[in-house]
């Protein structure tokens, strides 16, 4: 039993008394094994292995073009993989539409696509899954109930809104993400995919969103948190998948990696060091080599 107050999020509080999450359930909620995808002769993704469990956060890290979006599209049912296996609760699946993914309990919250900004919050909350009352041609929206539920669900996530009738565009970026997350939770999502939820946000708003991620996790959801920022991923993540140019370059449990290592991997520290060696071997100018080496060090210390 943990109590979330406004304590600082640290690795220690998260992993207190935890065993290896991989062994806590007999089957994973989601499991990808050597999954690959190509568009024509362009390989967008290959050899990706990862797992998602209830009450755990799996972070997918990578720079632009690393294959993150291809990966989530496969999981969210927008694309299908060509190689490897994708299992949901141990069952081999290929999802053909977002609807099918939703029916399997996988909900995606996209950074830009989360909401229709001109529509009221409650309409957004129930968009596509509206509650109705009445029969036949008199079937109508159950407006009051939807407003109540919206208000309550948001309150449970820690957002108190006076007016769920206001256009969602008037909310802050973090709050909008929260509405989308609350919505997914309400509609019975077991797996929540968050696509760069912090990318467009400032420091404070990012903190708010990270807190919602933990709330969702503590409600027993499996969370896939996609980001390019290890500083956002490390505090909340339980597992980390690193992607580069469509390939997995590492898959770690939290106990096996430190923030520094994660950052170094992300920043391509090894690559830079390699470049320095190469330059030296080629007999390049000393000052250039020194510059690259300085850059390697600077990156690491800056990130640390």
């Amino acid at each position: 039993m943990t109590t979330m107050d406004n304590k600082k999020i640290t690795q220690d509080t998260l992993l207190q008394g935890e065993t290896d999450p991989l062994t806590s359930t007999p089957v994973h909620l989601l499991n990808l094994d050597k999954v690959g995808k190509h568009y024509g002769n362009i390989i967008a993704l290959r050899d990706v292995t990862m797992a998602v469990d209830a009450g755990r956060v799996t972070c997918v890290l990578g720079d632009n073009g690393a294959g993150k979006s291809t990966l989530i599209k496969i999981i969210a049912g927008l694309h299908q993989h060509d190689e490897g296996t994708f299992t949901i609760l141990g069952e081999d699946r290929k999802l053909s539409s977002p609807r099918e993914a939703l029916d399997s309990g996988i909900a995606a919250v996209y950074q830009d696509l989360a909401v229709v900004s001109l529509m009221p919050i409650w309409r957004n909350f129930f968009l596509g899954s509206e509650l109705t009352t009445g029969v036949g041609p008199f079937k109508r929206l159950d407006v009051e109930r939807m407003k109540q539920i919206t208000k309550k669900e948001l309150q449970d996530m820690g957002i108190d809104l006076r007016d769920v009738e206001q256009p969602i565009g008037q909310l802050s970026g973090g709050e909008r993400q929260c509405v989308a997350i609350a919505r997914a939770v309400h509609f019975g999502a077991k797996v929540l995919i968050l696509d760069e939820p912090t990318a467009a946000l400032g420091v404070k708003q990012s903190g708010v969103v990270l807190r919602y991620i933990l709330q969702a996790r503590d409600r027993g959801l499996g969370v896939i948190f996609i980001t390019h920022n290890p500083h956002h991923a490390y505090p909340v993540g339980d597992r980390f998948l690193l992607l580069k140019r469509g390939k997995s370059i590492g898959y770690y449990n939290k106990k096996d990696i430190t923030l520094e290592e994660l950052t170094a991997q992300m920043a391509g520290g090894a690559e830079l060091a390699e470049l320095a060696h190469e330059l030296e071997a080629l007999g390049g100018h000393k000052d250039v080599v020194a510059e690259v080496e300085a850059e390697v060090e600077a990156t690491e210390s800056r990130r640390a």
Binding site: M1, T2, T3, M4, N6, G174, V208, R219
Partner: peptide, 8 residues
């Protein structure tokens, strides 16, 4: 059994 965080 989490209590809600302070309303944002």
């Amino acid at each position: 059994t989490m209590t809600a965080t302070a309303p944002v």
